[in-house]
Design a protein around this nucleic acid. Structure first.
Ligand SMILES: NC(=O)c1ccc[n+]([C@@H]2O[C@H](COP(=O)([O-])OP(=O)(O)OC[C@H]3O[C@@H](n4cnc5c(N)ncnc54)[C@H](O)[C@@H]3O)[C@@H](O)[C@H]2O)c1
Ligand SMILES: NC(=O)c1ccc[n+]([C@@H]2O[C@H](COP(=O)([O-])OP(=O)(O)OC[C@H]3O[C@@H](n4cnc5c(N)ncnc54)[C@H](O)[C@@H]3O)[C@@H](O)[C@H]2O)c1
Lengths: 227, 227
DNA sequence: CCCGGTTTGTTCTCCCGTTCACAAACTCCT
DNA sequence: AGGAGTTTGTGAACGGGAGAACAAACCGGG
């Protein structure tokens, strides 16, 4: 493995570079472990956990092996211990401040979602360019003008921004975010954002998901049109 | 590849099996082409289209080659012609009826989203188990009891269902959907659905997206904690 | 102390997707 | 008509991820 050299020079504790695909599954394991823990399960095998997470057990074990050797052969994994290790690896042991820009249909739903808070994300501000939206209070947070972005980002050291504006505004918003020092963006607008290399963007595009389903659906029915 | 046999029996025109990854990008190209068309662009090169879609031009050409040879060497692609070909391949030349179950924060945002309609998806019903939600009208559509699912699915030949209920209800809802004949599910609840093989599920998990960003963010700052 | 049963961690192989690079094909200008 | 310039479509090399399979490690009982 030629990556051994690189791995060796990184910092001592848990800093090996984890494959992209594995990183995307760790949150799923985390959630499954939380559920198991709440059910009072103290220990679980890779088979059980894989079942709860909806993945193959071999894949699960391989994924966990990137973090280190946290299991015990012949026994399994200690639920709470493993949960903490994954949480620490992902970085959700502490709170991440987040700003949401674009408080329309989707932005309001996001602001109202309790699942973010419980997973280590704290919405510190809701921003919207529309003056009519000011003074509105969504999820107990006042909607503020978009120009307040820079001040808020500095004050709370915000690193993560969420874009829920129309597609046409998305690039402008992203540019402003980057200028303020935000380095991670979750984009709901159907527009391919152009950002500097050091800035990470993840996009969520609901229409695309439906279109993928439509494609498969069409093939199932022998490309017949729906009703 | 053992799936070749299956492919062979499908109908003659444009029924090659397209790689998963390509299918996921076709909607992106479709949107980029629509934008170009609205701007009055009649022809575009793979380089231009790739730029508008945010991908590599080589990848774009390879993706399009799975559909057939719709370009002209030395010239490029006819925007409207290519757009139609992709739309036909995906199956969005006709309307797909869709039901949304769970009309809470997220379900309401989805119901109000105009982008689905314009991309070939028609919300035929909003369903919720909470009696308090009945008689509410969201996006001009009346919220109906969950038990109406079967009748609606039959009446409109619905093949695609969207789940926006809490995680604990998601599996029940999915089971009911499958029992009614729905064969494609878009799941927003953070729960790994268990469905028969012939049913396609795509999940959208917003918390996971944020957690992936948090992981990368943590590595950027030398695993330091945020403010 | 030893042995059978269990489960992890890892190795190996295969497949899918990405990217490079280039020949084939087309246009336009002379 | 021919050649220069442009752009597509694809063959081939490469890297990463999925899954099977197995050896190493652990537990408990005798
Ligand atoms: N609603 C959904 O379910 C849904 C589904 C899929 C995709 N999307 C996408 O998510 C985005 C938001 O959707 P929506 O339905 O909430 O739209 P919306 O029109 O309800 O809300 C958009 C909000 O963004 C604000 N805004 C516009 N320009 C801005 C700017 N430059 N700076 C700050 N704020 C600005 C508007 O004032 C408005 O409040 C869109 O890009 C849409 O395509 C939404
Ligand atoms: N709101 C968000 O932005 C957001 C973000 C990420 C994930 N999610 C997920 O999306 C789902 C919905 O989120 P939400 O914020 O809209 O929740 P919500 O509580 O606002 O709405 C859930 C709705 O589902 C209905 N419901 C419950 N059980 C049902 C059943 N068995 N059949 C039919 N309807 C039922 C409830 O009556 C309620 O109206 C949740 O699983 C949540 O984790 C939401």
């Amino acid at each position: 493995m030629e990556r051994a050299a690189v791995t060796a020079r990184t910092s001592p504790e848990s800093a090996r570079d984890i494959p992209e695909a594995t990183v995307a599954r760790l949150p799923v394991y985390l959630r499954a472990l939380t559920t198991l823990s709440e059910q009072g399960t103290g220990t679980c095998s890779s088979e059980e956990l894989a079942g709860a997470a909806g993945v193959n057990s071999a894949k699960l074990r391989k994924d966990l092996s990137y973090l280190g050797s946290y299991g015990t052969r012949g026994v399994g994994y200690d639920v709470d211990y493993l949960r903490y290790q994954i949480a620490r690896e992902i970085g959700v042991t502490q709170d991440w401040p987040v700003v949401i820009v674009g408080i329309g249909n989707l932005g309001q739903a996001l602001a109202n979602y309790s699942g973010f808070r419980s997973r280590g994300f704290r919405v510190v501000a809701l921003l919207d360019a529309d003056p009519a939206r000011r003074d509105e209070v969504v999820a107990g947070i006042e909607v503020r003008p978009f120009d307040d972005l820079e001040g808020i980002v500095r004050e709370h050291s915000v690193a993560i921004g969420v874009i829920a504006t129309p597609a046409l505004s998305a690039q402008d918003v992203a540019d402003r975010m980057v200028a303020c020092g935000i380095t991670s963006i979750l984009n709901f607008a159907p527009f391919p954002l152009n950002v500097p290399d050091q800035v990470d963007v993840r996009k969520v595009d609901l229409s695309i998901e439906l279109q993928i389903l439509a494609y498969r659906e069409q093939r199932k029915t022998g490309q017949g049109a729906p009703a």
